[in-house]
Write a protein that binds this DNA or RNA. Structure first.
Length: 527
RNA sequence: GCGGGUAUAGCUUAAUGGUAAAGCCCUAGCCUUCCAAGCUAGUUAUGAGGGUUCGAUUCCCUCUACCCGCUCCA
């Protein structure tokens, strides 16, 4: 991305964040206390939007399918579950920092090196009387000049100088000593500088069960789940046995997960608390690869149906070596966010890894009798795992639009429109009496509101001029506005009696529709 | 976690070591017959904590959050 494009996208993102706050889609968590890093709250409209997304996902994946069952598992998770899944111990990265360049490196990805280690106890500057006592060393590999070590060390110690006018070259190094080493990973391959000791970053939130549990009591340890998937695997046997299922079949779940991200970023995109919409689709071993491709297509269709067009999505076929070790095939579905192309959903073929692990660790039989093969087997699993909050953010970014409109006086102005698909829009219809100081109009509008509220989210507004009310609805993405005027009351004759103005958000066009038809007209377009 | 930036009303901006200003928005009233109209009135702010000072939004320190770049994202 060029600097200009990057700048433009930053401005776009700021506008989106501002609108989300101003109109009550998304607020920073605990804002009045200064905010909580990596956590966000949904306001009234955000909550409606999210509910629409979750409801539609559930409808498509559970309600309309005979072969997928729903569940809703606990967030607090038994530590043995996460030991079996590999999250305890494995769900962390040892990291170290370069003392000179401050670069952060994965400790397990540093190539072992051989060479001479030059160590120093500190440095001083004679003229100013400045000195520092701090051990530091530099690796000089074969073929490199030993003066490189001294130069690097002086640069390191120069960081502590209070007088930045002093050149690092003028520093006197203290107590140089050398030592031959082989296969060391304590030095930055880039510059030879010493690294900090590797530190563990565990990405799970840990807690203790029981009100009186002590911090040191290992048996009371529980975790907030880092993914919803594990509750599905641990309940696989119960769900299968209570529902007379046969392969292939799936278990679906929507729920919160928690990861102690090192660096939450990009608005709600990488949050520490987030919601997932996951399906574990169990199948015979020979079906896994084909089902992964089928699920990819189903999921792309889903995004199309909620208003995220195929051309704004990217499919990443995750190559060998970059997939999780248990996965034979993974597709990442990515969206073109203003801040870059980022993952919305992963469709992963996880083989029989999870059930086998839980069978092994729990000692319980998790085999499944397959009627067709007439044998017991550990089912394989294909996992379409979607980020709910990420999809919400994508819906918001996709919907946001600013268009220039010219009014009757020829004056140009910007119309901000959230072009949500009617299916996802937080408010489906606004009911507006043309004038609020005419009781007959207000009364009629209230009647229409009552007709519609059992079926959809309706917003009633009688304040301000009608044009202003239309624009307010544009800004929150309400696809339809209904205006009640004197024709509705029959003042222009029987023909227009009990008809209203129906105004379309995207085109701003208006049509006349009878009140009797209104409900079905709207339902057809929002379902 | 590192480096850089930012923090004043719901939003966009102003100003000041001594009563924090405006526009938009919002609320109420009047008026208004279909795209942010007009008039009147009104609500709302210096991110948190500490220090210097008679007095700090302003100067200094610490913290927090957000943005950008690294890093990370099983």
């Amino acid at each position: 991305m060029s600097d200009a494009a990057s700048e433009k996208n930053t401005v776009l993102m700021e506008k989106i964040v501002s609108l989300c706050k101003r109109r009550g889609f998304i607020f920073q968590s605990a804002e009045i206390y200064g905010g909580l890093n990596g956590c966000w709250d949904y306001g009234p409209l955000g909550a409606e939007l999210k509910r629409n997304l979750k409801d539609y996902w559930w409808r498509k994946n559970v309600q309309e399918r005979e072969d997928i069952l729903g569940m809703d598992g606990s967030i607090l998770t038994h530590q043995e579950v996460l030991k079996a899944s590999g999250h305890v111990g494995g769900f962390s990265d040892p990291m170290c920092d370069c003392l000179l360049s401050k670069a952060r490196l994965r400790a397990d990805q540093i190539e072992p090196q051989d060479g001479d280690v030059y160590s120093y106890a500190g440095a001083s500057h004679e003229e100013s009387g400045w000195s520092v006592d701090r051990a530091y060393s530099v690796l000089v590999t074969e073929g490199q000049d030993e003066n490189k070590a001294r130069k690097t060390a002086r640069l390191y110690y120069a960081q502590f100088l209070t007088d930045k006018q002093i050149s690092p070259k003028k520093l006197e190094l203290a107590d140089e000593s050398t030592e031959k080493v082989e296969g060391t990973t304590q030095f930055n391959p880039e510059n030879g500088s010493l690294l900090t000791e590797p530190r563990e970053f565990n990405l799970m939130f840990k807690t203790h069960m029981g009100a009186s549990a002590e911090d040191g009591d290992e048996s009371s340890v529980a975790y907030l789940r880092p993914e919803t998937a594990q509750t599905i695997f641990t309940q696989f046997k119960n769900v299968a046995e209570t529902n007379r299922v046969k392969l292939p079949f799936g278990i679906a779940q929507i729920g919160k997960s928690f990861r102690n991200e090192i660096n939450p970023r990009n608005y709600t995109f990488r949050s520490r608390e987030f919601e997932q919409m996951e399906i574990e689709f169990f199948c015979r071993p020979d079906e896994g690869m084909a089902l992964t491709d089928e699920w990819l297509e189903l999921r792309l269709k889903f995004y199309e149906e909620i208003g995220i067009p195929r051309q704004h999505l990217h499919i990443l076929d995750v190559p060998d070596g970059e997939r999780a070790h248990y996965s034979k095939k993974t597709y990442d579905i990515e969206y073109e966010f203003p801040f870059g192309i980022q993952e919305l959903e992963g469709v992963a073929y996880r083989t029989d890894y999870d059930l086998s692990k839980h069978k092994e660790c729990s000692g319980k039989p998790l085999d499944f009798f397959d009627d067709e093969a007439k044998e017991k087997l550990i089912p394989h699993v294909v996992e379409p795992s979607a980020g709910c909050d990420r999809t919400i953010l994508a819906l918001i970014c996709e919907a946001f639009d600013e268009e220039t409109v010219t009014d009757e006086k020829g004056k140009e102005e910007v119309r901000t429109v959230m072009r949500f698909s009617p299916r996802m829009a937080p408010i489906k219809v606004a009911v507006l009496p043309l004038l609020k100081n005419k009781p007959e109009l207000v009364e009629k509008a209230r009647e229409i509101q009552q007709i519609l509220t059992p079926f959809m989210t309706v917003f009633y507004d009688e304040t301000a001029a009608i044009g202003r009310r239309y624009r307010r609805q544009d800004e929150v993405g309400t696809p339809f506005c209904v205006t009640i005027d004197f024709d509705t009351l029959g003042e222009s004759g029987e023909e227009l009696k009990d008809t209203v103005t129906l105004r379309h958000r995207d085109s701003m066009e208006q049509e006349r529709i009878s009140i009797a038809e209104l409900r079905n007209f709207l339902l057809d377009r929002i379902h």
